[in-house]
């Protein structure tokens, strides 16, 4: 990764969003910022992917959206994890661990 940035792997965005809103409810921009910060600027979530993903997750009942206000006092939607989302996240995390460990094992020179 010469420029220090990584493309998001297909399917991992949902996992990242769910993980990010697990503790505290956040609005869209805060989610993207949190992901960027937590990944030390490696992962930059494109807004073009973020909002469709948020609406998709909401439609699937994995996250819930509440009316809220941004720091600028604008009406925004604040997302939090639903019970189903919590269960789903646990599965996703476990799946991811398995996957990344497997990939890691392959990448390590024998």
């Amino acid at each position: 990764m010469p420029d220090g940035r990584a493309d998001l792997l297909q399917g991992t965005l949902d996992l990242l969003i769910l993980q990010t809103v697990q503790k505290t409810p956040l609005h869209g921009w805060a989610i993207s910022k949190r992901i960027r910060e937590r990944s030390a600027n490696v992962l930059d979530v494109n807004q073009g992917s973020l909002y469709p993903a948020l609406y998709r997750l909401e439609a699937r009942g994995l996250i819930l959206a509440d009316e809220g206000l941004s720091e600028q006092g604008r009406r925004v939607r604040v997302y939090r994890l639903s019970a189903a989302g919590k269960k789903h996240l646990a599965q996703e995390v476990a799946g991811w661990r398995l996957f990344s460990q497997a990939v890691e094992r392959i990448l390590v020179p024998a």
Binding site: W29, S32, Q72, R74, R77
Partner: peptide, 12 residues
């Protein structure tokens, strides 16, 4: 609304 707020937050 959500988009506008996003742009504002990003700008700030």
């Amino acid at each position: 609304d959500e988009l506008r707020s996003h742009v504002e937050a990003e700008t700030d």
